[in-house]
Simulated assay, not measured.
Amino acid sequence: MTIVRSSTAGQPRLAPAPGGLRKEAAWRRRDRRWGYIFIGPQVIGMAIFVLVPFVGSLVLAFASWDGLTELTWVGFDNFISQAQDPLLIRSILNTLLIALITVPIGLGFSVVIAVALEKLKTRTLYLVLFFAPVVTSTVAVAMIWQQMLRADGVLSSVVWKAFGISPTDWLGDPRLALVSVCIVSIWASMGLNVIIFLAGLQNISPSVIEAAKLDGAGAFTLFWRIRMPLLSPIIFFSSVIAFISSLQTFDVVFVLTANAGPDNATRTIVYHIYDLGFGRFEFGPSSAAAVILLLLTLVITAVQFGVQKKFVHYEDGAE
Score class of each variant (00 low, 15 high):
residue 2 T to G: 09
residue 3 I to G: 01
residue 6 S to R: 08
residue 9 A to E: 11
residue 9 A to S: 14
residue 11 Q to K: 12
residue 15 A to W: 11
residue 21 L to C: 08
residue 23 K to E: 13
residue 27 W to R: 14
residue 30 R to G: 05
residue 30 R to Y: 06
residue 31 D to R: 14
residue 38 F to G: 02
residue 40 G to F: 11
residue 41 P to C: 00
residue 43 V to K: 07
residue 46 M to P: 05
residue 50 V to I: 12
residue 51 L to V: 15
residue 51 L to Y: 15
residue 53 P to D: 08
residue 62 F to L: 13
residue 64 S to N: 14
residue 65 W to C: 02
residue 65 W to P: 00
residue 68 L to Y: 15
residue 74 V to E: 08
residue 75 G to D: 06
residue 78 N to Y: 01
residue 81 S to N: 15
residue 81 S to K: 14
residue 86 P to A: 03
residue 87 L to M: 14
residue 88 L to P: 07
residue 89 I to M: 12
residue 90 R to L: 05
residue 91 S to Q: 01
residue 101 I to F: 07
residue 106 G to F: 00
residue 107 L to W: 00
residue 110 S to K: 05
residue 118 E to I: 09
residue 121 K to W: 10
residue 124 T to A: 13
residue 124 T to Y: 10
residue 129 L to R: 05
residue 131 F to C: 01
residue 133 P to Q: 02
residue 134 V to Y: 14
residue 134 V to R: 09
residue 136 T to V: 03
residue 139 V to I: 15
residue 142 A to N: 06
residue 152 D to Q: 13
residue 159 V to G: 04
residue 163 F to G: 06
residue 167 P to Y: 05
residue 169 D to Y: 04
residue 170 W to E: 04
residue 173 D to T: 02
residue 175 R to Q: 10
residue 177 A to P: 07
residue 178 L to C: 05
residue 179 V to S: 06
residue 192 L to I: 11
residue 198 L to C: 06
residue 198 L to V: 08
residue 199 A to C: 00
residue 200 G to E: 03
residue 200 G to V: 04
residue 206 P to Q: 00
residue 217 A to L: 12
residue 218 G to K: 05
residue 223 F to L: 13
residue 225 R to V: 06
residue 236 F to M: 06
residue 236 F to Y: 14
residue 239 S to P: 08
residue 239 S to E: 10
residue 239 S to L: 15
residue 243 F to A: 13
residue 244 I to W: 09
residue 256 L to K: 01
residue 259 N to F: 11
residue 260 A to I: 03
residue 263 D to R: 10
residue 264 N to F: 09
residue 274 Y to I: 00
residue 275 D to I: 05
residue 277 G to M: 01
residue 282 E to P: 07
residue 284 G to Q: 02
residue 285 P to C: 03
residue 293 L to Y: 10
residue 296 L to V: 05
residue 296 L to K: 00
residue 297 T to D: 09
residue 298 L to N: 07
residue 304 Q to S: 05
residue 306 G to R: 00
residue 313 H to P: 07
residue 314 Y to I: 09
residue 316 D to H: 08
